[in-house]
Nucleic acid binder design. Structure first.
Lengths: 403, 403
DNA sequence: TTTAGTTAGTCTTATGGCCAAACAAATGAC
DNA sequence: GTCATTTGTTTGGCCATAAGACTAACTAAA
């Protein structure tokens, strides 16, 4: 079935074509190498139709034929794989002290991963645009040198990004109402590819949904673990942004009216009791945001050494985290909640108690089938997801123009 | 654009046709009476295509031609409206002390609304199936007498319903693992129409999304206000049920670890501090569930009289409710949260403080555009939504067979 | 009363994309 | 060497939409 997902929009055969091109493309990504006959058998499309679709995709260099099968009865099949070489998708992540750029090919293979220090915490959005544009131009020129066409660029920002790509508030960066998508497009002077901006948690969720070990889950939630805590929500196979794009702001769910004061001014917010700030407040109260990574390393070291107070602290954080995740699981019933950011190195001491707390609070039998897992994509999840956002457009059938 | 919303499913012409039939049908529902030319101009479909689609819809008696326009320059247009007469969709709601059945036509006009007392709280699921089947048969025979074809039947159940229509847990009814959809289909002996089962909050949300004053909102949350508190979530224009169908279980989000004990055994759950139980515990601690309606009437009367302790109680409940809704708004960023059930009569004393509390806690600027509103659909929202669930199938292009 | 202008809806033809089935190609099994 | 098997292409048919000509039915104004 076809579902026009945003209201009454009519369909015609170009939509059928786009849908089916996307079906074939996704099938090959998930089952490569495979033959045309495999595709026809599994998708239900007619053999002739598959041949025509594959021809289109080969023309546009999205697919490539590899060798033939051997030693089987019948005519050998020509195998198809994604063609990694001619395209690139760029993802950029801005943060408090660095900008990361990654480029991936259609398969999701990382082509480059550049990290460049940048005083995000003390720079204006305008300065960030200049820095990002410079970095983006270098990435684009590298990709061009490799004879790759850039399909698009997406920027991940830790903050509230509305549906138009305007950064409404980015507390850690000190930005307000910055039209990042527009300004960056201007700074790149007619780049010839779309420039998008989205929230970092949303994009990390997209990365997990596309590349992570739970990529089959149509309903998943990714939780960032920095000083701030945010979530990206995938339901029914797509990122759900809410009415204005601000979904997933779980950091300020109030868990305890008698809890510690949060930087938002209220008490007992999830991020005040289970964010990195809650840990630093008790281990390194004077640390600046840029020292976060070092300090967490130190916490990990002390936990490994079995220091009692640290273990107790982490258990406490884990329990609060579990309570927050129970709220998520009760409200959204995802198949999996994936913990990212600094929750990853801290996971050995957090997850067990968080899970226990969560399962104890989820109403649905068996916790609604919701598991609590740890991200395997590392710190670059948001940047990777930003690139994945670009590939999503291709996946939904908007193929790059034929050359 | 067309989006195949559940994974790689290929499309063909029948899908295009179905999509466009649905587009026309929805357009007429929202803009009746209107002409073929209006449809073509607004949807972008070709005039000839619209004529063909409309002919199909008239053949199947989903549309009807009414008179002509007059006193306008040019050839008068033949106006089209939904044809209410030949079909019916049935919704049934089971509850602690009654079963409600409603039938609506394609326009959503209520054809009948029967309420029949039933000791749901002390009956088994099997007994309920017998009672529902009896009621359903009477409704069907009435509809048949009116020469209407029944398009389907949906049952709304206050409890956890999985994606297959099995009732996993219904605490107020005391049911567990009841295959209601299957059993009811059997009891109706090949009814010739689909029988579905879903959660009452989900279906009430669907009713609001289709018939309510905020029917244009693609992102809305409906909150039930009974002893239990649950939510139905519409995001991006569709009901989102989560991985197993248990989304929206907000009643046991923990708002205060030091709060009163909830019937689930834990402390400070939303429904323990802002559900009807929280009110009854302080006004009529010995009331049985079936007296709920009377007791709430009494609370309303006393609030109208300005009784201090009642007003204070309601303000307290309102504040807790607002905190819970802040969690909802932060996580989902809906355009509107609609309060239903007994929140409706209590709204004059609840909403102002709930709203204040909510806006104070939502991180997004301007509360993310999220409003807190009161349902206007009355107690029958779930049953109405159950019927709406049937109409949704028609709307997505699965038209009833031609006669 | 004629004529021009306007809008509604149908008819004809073309195009694009899918499917079914026949067919060609390339292999293994016997 | 022949047959069975599997792959992928070709052919023809079908279906739905688009474009534009055409018919229909009205108002306005000369």
């Amino acid at each position: 079935m076809i579902t026009s997902h945003n209201g009454p929009q009519p369909a015609d055969f170009t939509d059928v074509r786009a849908t089916n091109l996307a079906v074939v493309l996704r099938f090959v990504r998930e089952n490569a190498p495979c033959s045309r006959a495999d595709i026809a058998a599994s998708t239900g499309l007619n053999k002739a139709t598959v041949s025509s679709l594959v021809a289109d995709l080969i023309d546009r260099r999205l697919l490539r034929e590899t060798g033939l099968t051997e030693h089987r009865v019948g005519r050998p099949a020509t195998m198809l794989v994604l063609d990694g070489s001619p395209y690139a998708a760029i993802g950029i992540e801005v943060n408090v002290d660095y900008i990361t750029a990654v480029a991936v090919d259609l398969k999701g293979e990382e082509l480059l991963n550049w990290r460049r220090s940048f005083p995000g915490g003390t720079s204006s959005a305008g300065q960030a645009v200049v820095a990002m544009a410079a970095l983006a131009r270098r990435v684009v020129s590298r990709m061009t040198k490799e004879a790759r066409q850039v399909l698009g660029l997406t920027v991940a920002v830790p903050g509230l990004v509305d549906v138009n790509g305007t950064v409404r508030v980015a507390p850690n960066l000190g930005w307000r109402d910055a039209d990042l998508a527009g300004d960056l497009t201007k700074a790149l002077r007619d780049p010839g590819f779309p420039v998008l901006v989205d929230n970092d948690a949303n994009l990390a969720a997209l990365a997990e949904h596309r590349f992570g070990p739970h990529r089959n889950a149509a309903n998943l939630v990714y939780v960032t673990g920095e000083v701030g805590v945010g979530a990206g929500i995938v339901m029914d196979g797509r990122l759900r942004r809410g009415g204005q794009g601000y979904s997933g702001e779980i950091g300020h769910i109030e868990l305890d009216p008698a809890g510690p004061t949060c930087r938002c001014g209220r008490r007992g917010c999830l991020e005040a009791v289970a964010g990195m700030g809650a840990i630093l407040a008790r281990t390194a109260p004077d640390a600046s945001p840029s020292e976060l990574e070092l300090e967490i390393d130190e916490v990990v070291r002390r936990a490994r050494n079995g220091e009692r107070d640290i273990l107790a602290l982490l258990e406490d954080v884990g329990r609060h985290l579990g309570r927050g995740m129970a709220a998520v699981a009760n409200m959204l019933n995802p198949e999996v909640v994936i913990l990212g950011g600094y929750y990853v190195p801290l996971a050995p001491w957090l997850v067990a108690c968080a899970e226990e707390e969560m399962y104890g609070r989820v109403l649905a039998p068996g916790g609604g089938g919701c598991r609590l897992e740890v991200s395997t994509l590392g710190y670059g999840a948001a940047a990777l997801g930003a690139a994945a956002r670009v590939l999503d457009s291709v996946d939904s059938g908007r193929l790059p123009a034929q050359r």
